[in-house]
Amino acid sequence: MIGYSYKFWGKRRGSGSWRARGKTLAVAIVAVSLLGSSGGEPSDERIFPAPELGKFRNPRPYPSRPLPPDEEARLLDPPPIDDEYFPCDDCHEGEPADPRERELEEHDNIKISHGDLWCLDCHQDDQRDLLHLSDHSPVQMAESWRVCTRCHAKRIPDWRAGVHGKRVGNWIGAKEYFTCVVCHDPHAPLFKPLTPKPPPQPVKGLKLRTLIRLEEVPYEED
């Protein structure tokens, strides 16, 4: 596959078809005339020659546009924590932490299913509104992904590059990054199964008389 990629980069649009060869001449003529008029600009290696245009001298009635500058990705805020529990200091203010693993009286809605972790492995023991790193330096809830890196450091390069996790917005320009906890419940990070959307209609029964009149049956929303 890697070999394939090299070929891909090295020989963009260099299809060896004999049709292409004929057109290369036309492109060359156009290119020479363009150079003559513009005085010749410094060539950038990343700029590929214009694609072959076939019989069309006026290939498309719009001009090409320069690439807009890319912007920093913004991190999407994690989902808000339930008012009933947050801020934690409302209950835990000044209370000494009990580090033992045990059946909790409160928080019975939380089932920890995250390796061998226990609450205080991530939550700061003296300041419950915060999380902590390995050296117990505090981390804000909004930056929870920094806590995740303690164990999942290998994911970070992929995530920064946008390959692990999800981004929305613009492929070039402003975009929003989903942080870890947007998709993964920190207490049970394994992805929950989803109900799939309906399957496509089998082609077999598709007949004129089976078509639905859509004015009567509105298309089903999610």
Binding site: R12, D44, R46, I47, F48, R60, P61, Y62, P63, S64, R65, P66, L67, P68, V163, F191, P193, L194, T195, P196, K197, P198, P199, P200, D222
Partner: peptide, 28 residues
């Protein structure tokens, strides 16, 4: 719109086979 192509752009797409769960959200 008749927005034209940008300079120096060749689009590519990646799909993570190890992640896809088949929920068909993309289809709809």
């Amino acid at each position: 719109g008749v927005t034209g192509p940008m300079d120096d752009v060749l689009f590519g797409y990646g799909l993570d086979v190890s992640r896809c769960i088949g929920c068909r959200r993309c289809v709809y």
